[in-house]
Amino acid sequence: MDERSRLSSSFGAAATAYAEHRPDYARAAVRWALEPAPGPRVLDLGAGTGKLSATLVALGVEVVAVEPDPAMLAELRRALPAVRALPGSAEAVPLPDGSVDAVLAGNAMHWFDMAVAGPEIARVLAPGGVLAGLWNILDDRVGWVADLERVSGSAAIGPRDTVSSWRAATATMLAPGTGPVARFDAAAQVEFPHGQRRTADSLVATLATRAGMLVMADPERRAVLGRIRDFLGSTPETARGEFTLPMLTGVLRARRL
């Protein structure tokens, strides 16, 4: 198994913690992602435990969720029993041609093999349908968040430049005239303010669900989480009680031609 596959398949072992601790998505970001969609039928692709699906349900759209990991899918079905939730992947979507008006992926598109997933997503989208990837990013313009990133390392945080590079690569693959995925117009990117109420302990638990942390050897993971816990305990903004973790929800949106 290559490194990318090892990371992408790591979440099932922590599905319960993922469901409890991972953030939702800024509603303004989800609304913007759906703005050009020609209808209300939305596929949450790589849906995980249903974080994005829950926001879509709250916005009143018709949601079908597709997730490859059985443990993550079980958590989604437990949390959102009214949502149609199917096993499947971005590379093999178990839906008919033209059956949805939008495909959204929350913190998932960077795991897709877009050379295969792009045509498959285009297949299930109605003409004029929308493809949007959403990512929650820690807002490192805030001083203590930038310090947390330095203390934690990329395995726990997933640095902003890494996420940006995934977006740029995906945008290039979706751009018109660039090969087998050239079924979408030029992608647009926007970021929306977001936040998550945390304590020091719950933020440590949140960061422990990152793929880079899940694949670490136990001694290394304990050491990294220990550094994070020490930092949060010594920082005025996070040392006592609840605080808001400053985040951004970034959106990459393209429309099917």
Rank of each mutant, 00 (worst) to 15 (best):
L104Q: 02
G153L: 08
G128E: 10
D97T: 15
A92E: 10
F184K: 06
A102T: 06
L104V: 15
M109C: 09
S89I: 04
S89E: 09
H194Q: 02
E91T: 06
A205K: 05
E191Q: 05
P94Y: 07
T206M: 14
S154C: 11
L203W: 11
R167Q: 14
V116T: 14
T199P: 03
D97I: 12
A168L: 12
R160K: 11
I137Q: 02
A108C: 07
F112W: 14
W111F: 09
L148W: 10
A126D: 11
R183W: 15
W135L: 09
G133V: 01
A168S: 14
A92P: 04
L95P: 13
L86T: 05
V215E: 02
T209Q: 06
T170Y: 07
P87T: 07
A102F: 15
G88F: 04
M173F: 03
T206A: 13
R123P: 09
D140F: 10
A171Q: 02
H194Y: 02
D185F: 08
N136W: 09
A132M: 07
D185W: 04
R167I: 06
R123V: 00
L125Y: 08
I157Q: 01
L203G: 13
T209Y: 06
P94E: 06
V100T: 02
G106T: 09
H110D: 02
S202D: 02
L131R: 01
L95V: 09
L203P: 00
I157H: 01
A188G: 05
P159T: 03
E120A: 09
G133D: 01
R210S: 15
P127I: 05
L174T: 06
G129H: 05
I121V: 15
G118C: 13
F112Q: 02
A171P: 00
G88T: 00
S89L: 11
P119A: 13
I121P: 03
D97C: 10
E91P: 08
A102S: 03
G128V: 04
H194K: 00
N136F: 07
S99V: 04
A115G: 12
V142G: 00
R197E: 10
W166M: 11
V181N: 11
L203C: 12
L214S: 03
V142Q: 03
N136R: 05
A122D: 03
L148E: 01
G98I: 02
D161C: 14
V130T: 12
R160Y: 14
V163F: 11
S89R: 08
F192I: 04
P94V: 01
V142T: 15
D147G: 11
D185L: 10
E149N: 12
G158M: 11
R141K: 10
V204I: 03
H194I: 00
S154E: 15
A175P: 00
A155K: 09
